[in-house]
Computed example of a mutant assay.
Amino acid sequence: MPLPFTPGGLIFDCDGTLADTMPLHYQAWRATLDRVGHPTLFTEEQFYAWAGAPAYEIL
């Protein structure tokens, strides 16, 4: 999408510093696990305890 101006810089929030994306990540994990037949693989509390861990470690 073209911008009507040239930005002077960009901010990337990759770790949730500016935006709390953990609830969205949890919803995405839940939807995926539910779809593949693992609706109770881990609890929401466990998910938040793993904050910052790479997906391959969680799996």
Rank of each mutant, 00 (worst) to 15 (best):
V36M: 04
G16K: 03
I11C: 13
P39A: 07
L33P: 00
I11D: 07
D34E: 08
C14E: 11
M22R: 11
L41W: 02
G8L: 07
L10W: 13
R35H: 10
G37R: 05
L33S: 02
M22L: 14
A19W: 15
R35T: 09
L41T: 02
Y26N: 00
L10K: 10
D34T: 03
P23A: 00
H25N: 12
H38W: 07
D13K: 00
D15F: 09
D34S: 04
R35C: 04
P39C: 09
D15S: 05
I11M: 11
D13P: 00
T32L: 10
L10T: 08
M22K: 12
D15Q: 06
P7K: 01
T17F: 09
W29H: 01
D15N: 12
L24T: 14
F12P: 00
D13Y: 12
D13W: 11
Y26R: 01
L24E: 14
D15W: 05
G8E: 08
G8C: 06
A19V: 15
T17K: 08
L18F: 12
T43E: 02
D34F: 02
C14G: 15
V36D: 01
T40W: 04
P39N: 09
L18K: 09
T21I: 10
A19S: 10
T32W: 03
D20T: 08
Q27T: 13
T43M: 04
H25K: 15
I11G: 06
T21M: 08
A31Y: 07
A28R: 13
Q27S: 12
A19Q: 11
L33I: 02
I11H: 06
T32A: 11
L33K: 01
L18I: 14
T17C: 12
D15Y: 06
T40E: 13
D34N: 05
G8M: 03
P39W: 07
L10V: 12
A28D: 00
A31N: 11
M22Y: 08
F42P: 01
A31F: 07
P39V: 05
I11V: 15
F12H: 14
G37W: 05
R35L: 06
A19E: 10
L10F: 12
A31D: 10
D34I: 00
T43V: 07
H25L: 15
Q27A: 15
D15R: 06
H25M: 15
F12K: 12
P7A: 08
T43R: 04
F42V: 10
P7H: 03
D13L: 01
I11R: 02
W29D: 00
Q27I: 11
P7F: 03
F12A: 13
A19Y: 14
F42I: 12
P39S: 08
G37T: 05
F12I: 15
F12R: 03
I11S: 08
